[in-house]
Write a protein that binds this DNA or RNA. Structure first.
Lengths: 340, 340
DNA sequence: CTGAAAGCGCTAACAG
DNA sequence: CTGTTAGCGCTTTCAG
């Protein structure tokens, strides 16, 4: 590998001059700059990352901690990771991939060894044991999610409360009076991954505000669970005409179950999903949905980190507003058209 | 951050002794070893990654290049990535995440700057422009997939030819005489991502060998495409009683389409899918399937890289044998029971 | 505007 | 078995 010294010799300048040409941290006569750049090209010089990191105290690497088992939809996670990598590259950083199973110790490891100079942690739970660790780490971090005690930390997330409310409002606006939230598996609520609970809060509050009946039930990922849950729901609340679904894997089975039960969508049952756009669009009928803006969250997360690394300050909490796209799966409830 | 010099002073030894205690690269009296270890603990010492990399010429980081847009099922990809990270950690390495859109230049960048000391490249196409680059790189790499010219490279993949054949054999063993392969979208074949073509090869060869009719058709990911494709297939070949599916996203729609067309599974139509186990098991009925051993491929990839890094040699091509699990979606063709 | 020189924190000969 | 020393390749004062 060619070193900075070789480039310097080739260009007839000092190594520091080469460094400064590359970093632009002091002004260089256009003459020597050109000469150095030609030498860099000619020799195919690439600065050694470790040497640079050691001397500058900056690895130019961000850690990305992804969940392993989670209620989170995998493609959304991947979209998110992709967005983090892409954005990091725009700021000349690379991304080190960590899995959540390394736990708090893993964060300490990469941070304290200066392998990375900032961290993005996904799928943060309400009482996440990594939160206190992050607070003590000698470098900035951004959490995707929203722990109970977020003091001194930077969090970014979709505004799930607003998302839940938006679904209710959409259905209420259409004239529905009885609706249900088909939620994530109960394990997700128990783990207190904030997002499921916050959606529920938004759903319940909005239902109250709009004066509609809003019932709620968790749902596991198997076909049988969906069938059983929906049957039970319709037995207990026969008047339900609208469903909000926050559980991507059951969307297919749910449509199937409704078909089996003889409920047409949207004539007999309106549906609004909280899911990725491509999932909503690939169903029959295409689903009205609130998108999880994975790409935007990733972008925001990295931009916040870079700002912090440069000494800037960022808001402690960024809640991205949800956007509801009405598609074919929601309409006025049949037989109630025109009712108040 | 505490340095090796501080640990050395605290323990009353030389810095090199601390280094040797940590690396175990030479024998240390149990007395000083204990003393050093106590100091390491007491001070909470973590070796600086850049300094270590610079001095030892080893970053202890592997690059993982993941595809962005691909015919590959995302959860499988994620499984794979997870396996790579987990295995890398077992060998005391970390993983740098790169996306395919950085192209060959991205590989050169991380390799020539010594950011990583080996690479895993996923979703390698038949005529992948990264292949010649990898060949020239001054460090080992492993490809997941199987390019046309794999000379001098190490490749690992599922044996898709065998997978295609195994599906045919399974159905032929059950007594089916006319079967079809529902493949990936035609774009995937055109991109010549080897796996789709190799499955097709195995399917066609085995059908010939077993003397059964084997027809083949690509299929896009939309519901309408599935409906259209299956209708066309059954119109052209009404005798078909068995389907091999290599296209994870259409599995749900396909089951739905068959139901609509009044074909029961497996009574009227047997199904074998090439997909992840959890997908096969979450369908109704549970699908007979050939698994993509993502976890094992990831493990194998990292182990090969580590072996190469240590100067060992590994086979140029490792094709992991497919494993078929018979579940509820395949049976003898009704009305043909007992026929030869 | 440029060069010389002092580290960054660690590893690995080399010497004893 | 342990210590001394010379780098690894770069950045960044300090001097001019």
């Amino acid at each position: 590998m060619v070193t900075i010294a070789e480039v310097a010799r080739h260009a007839g300048v000092a190594a520091s001059t080469v460094s400064y040409v590359l970093s632009g941290k002091r002004s260089i006569s256009s003459d020597t700059r050109a000469r150095v750049q030609r030498s860099v090209q000619a020799l195919g010089y690439r600065p050694n990352a470790s040497a640079r990191a050691l001397a500058s105290q900056r690895a130019n690497v961000l850690a990305l901690v992804v969940p392993l088992r989670t209620g989170m939809h995998v493609p959304v996670m991947m979209q998110f990771a992709t967005s983090v990598v892409t954005t990091a590259r725009r700021f000349d950083h690379d991304v080190l991939l960590l899995t959540a199973d390394e736990g708090p110790e893993g964060l300490e490891r990469v941070a304290q060894s200066s392998l990375v100079d900032a961290l993005v942690v996904m799928d943060v739970e309400l009482h996440d044991e990594r939160v206190p660790v992050l607070r003590e780490l000698p470098m900035p971090s951004v959490l995707i999610g929203y722990p109970a005690d977020a003091d001194g930390l930077t969090c970014i997330d979709l505004d799930f409360v607003a998302a839940g409310a938006q679904c209710v409002d959409h259905l209420a606006d259409l004239g529905h009076h009885s609706i249900a939230l088909l939620g994530t598996p109960s394990a997700v609520y128990e783990r207190q991954t904030g997002f499921a609970q916050r959606t529920l809060t938004g759903f319940v509050d909005a239902a109250g505000r709009r004066g509609v009946l809003g019932v709620e039930t968790p749902c596991e990922h198997t076909f049988d669970a969906v069938l059983h849950t929906v049957e039970q729901l319709l037995r207990d609340h026969p008047g339900i005409t609208g469903l909000v679904v926050q559980n991507e894997p059951i969307i297919g089975p749910l449509l199937d179950v409704l078909r089996r039960l003889g409920r047409r969508v949207p004539e007999d049952m309106s549906l609004v999903a909280i899911c990725a756009d491509d999932v909503a669009e690939s169903q029959v009928p295409r689903l009205s949905s609130v998108t999880i803006p994975a790409e935007q969250i990733g972008l925001q997360a990295v931009e916040s980190l870079i700002t912090k690394l440069e000494g800037g300050s960022v808001p402690a909490l960024t809640l991205l507003p949800p956007g509801l796209t009405a598609r074919a799966s929601s309409s006025q409830p049949t037989g109630h058209i025109g009712s108040p």
